[in-house]
Amino acid sequence: MSGDKKRAGMNILDKIIQVIRDDSRALSEAVMDSTGNKIYEKQIEVAKVNLSSAKHAISDALAKESQCSRKVKLMKSQVDEHEQRIIKALSQNDEILAFDLATEMVELEQDLAAEAGILKSHELHLGHLTRQMENAERSLKELERQVAMVQTTADIQKATEVITKNFNQADSKMLSAKRSLERIRRKQQSLDEQYEVDDAMVNERKPVLTEKHQNEVSEQVTEDAADVLKRIIDKE
C-alpha cells in the first residue's frame, strides 16, 4: 500500500469518526444533496464517462502505433534489400549501379529515421495515456470505496434509527441482549427442570413397565407359535 493511499484511508476514517461524533445526520448530507441526489455518484458517473473516452483515445493511439510500427518494419526490410543489392552490384564490379542504389538508400534511411521518430513519439504518447488511465482507474476505485464507507455508516445509522423507533413502539426490551439472555436462561432452566421431572417419572415406572412388557411379549410369542403350528397342520 502506498503512503498516499494510507493517508487517504486514514483521512476518510478520520472524517467519518469526526462526523459521527459531531452530527450523525451530516453523514447523509455528505453523500446526498438537498434534493436527495447522491453527489458522489454523479462525480463517479462523470469520472466513468471520462475514463471511457480515455480508453477510446488509447485504442486510437494503439491503432496509430501499430500502423506506424508496420511501416517502420517494411522500410527496414527495404533498406536491408537495398544493402543486399549494393553488395551484389559491388561483387559484379557495377559501381555505377552500386552508387545509384546507395543514393536511393540514403533517402530510404532518412525516411526510416523520420518514421522511427514518429513511432517513438507514438509509443511515448501511448505510455503516457496508459499511465493516466491507470491512475484515473485507481482514483475512481478509491473514490467508490470511500463513498461506500461513508454510505454504509450512514445507512447503518439510519437502519438503527428505524429499528429502535420500531422497538420503542413495541418492546424496547427486545433490543437488550442481557435481558434476552436472561429470558433464554429462564426458559432453559424450566426445560431442564421439566426433563428432570420426566426422567424421574420414567425411572419410577421402569420396573412395572418392564414386567408388564415382558408378560405382553411372552403372550404374543405363545399366540404366534400357535398360529405357526395351525398353518403347518392345515397345509398337510
Binding site: A148, Q151, D155, A159, I163, L175, S176, K178
Partner: peptide, 13 residues
C-alpha cells in the same frame, strides 16, 4: 447497502 448485506444483533447500550 451498495456493496454489502449487513446482519446485526444489538447487544447493549
Amino acid at each position: 447497502t451498495q456493496f454489502q448485506i449487513i446482519c446485526i444483533i444489538y447487544l447493549w447500550t
